[in-house]
């Protein structure tokens, strides 16, 4: 039996009927065409599917869409909603050369956002810990860590 739910993704509402066994990752990519969120390992190890739910980073591949009814979801598409100006985290990733093949990038950026929203001035150790659930198989970790530190300086403090 399909379940009628409403997903709130990047500020938009999507009333949708979903099969109970479908993951948030599948619904984002296949039904909503938000393919910025990737599918990697399917088991919570690689972090390519990371999205924020109510501001917290989760693996969308291990989240049932049916359990996301009414929850606020942020995907990489929500980082630069205007489509004109990149988010400071994205700017830092581009300028610091933190992107190689790009497959891990959306997840990395959302993990960075999850960190910086809570901790605007993280240490290097805190950054490395924050992205420990995101694997980069190009192994470009140093540039990514530098980019997150750089982004911390670019983001306006929330008050």
């Amino acid at each position: 039996m399909k379940h009628e739910i409403t997903l709130h993704v990047n500020g938009d509402e999507y009333p949708i009927a979903v099969d109970p066994w479908r993951t948030l990752n599948e619904v984002l990519r296949e039904d909503l065409n938000l393919t910025g969120t990737k599918f990697g390992c399917g088991s919570g190890d690689c972090g390519a599917c990371t999205v924020l739910v109510e501001g917290r980073s989760v693996n969308s591949c291990l989240t049932l869409a049916v359990e996301m009814d009414g929850r606020e979801i942020t995907t990489v598409e929500g980082l630069a909603p205007s489509g004109e100006r990149l988010h400071p985290i994205q700017e830092a990733f581009v300028e610091r050369g933190a992107i190689q093949c790009g497959f891990c990038t959306p997840g990395m950026e959302l993990s960075a956002l999850h960190l910086l929203e809570k901790n605007p001035k993280p240490t290097e150790a805190e950054i490395r810990s924050a992205i420990s659930g995101n694997l980069c198989r190009c192994t470009g970790y140093n540039k990514i860590v530098e980019a997150v530190a750089d982004a911390a300086g670019r983001m306006k403090p929330k008050k």
Partner: peptide, 9 residues
């Protein structure tokens, strides 16, 4: 236990 995302779930 596991990593950030898993601990958030």
């Amino acid at each position: 236990t596991a990593n950030v995302q898993v601990r958030n779930m």
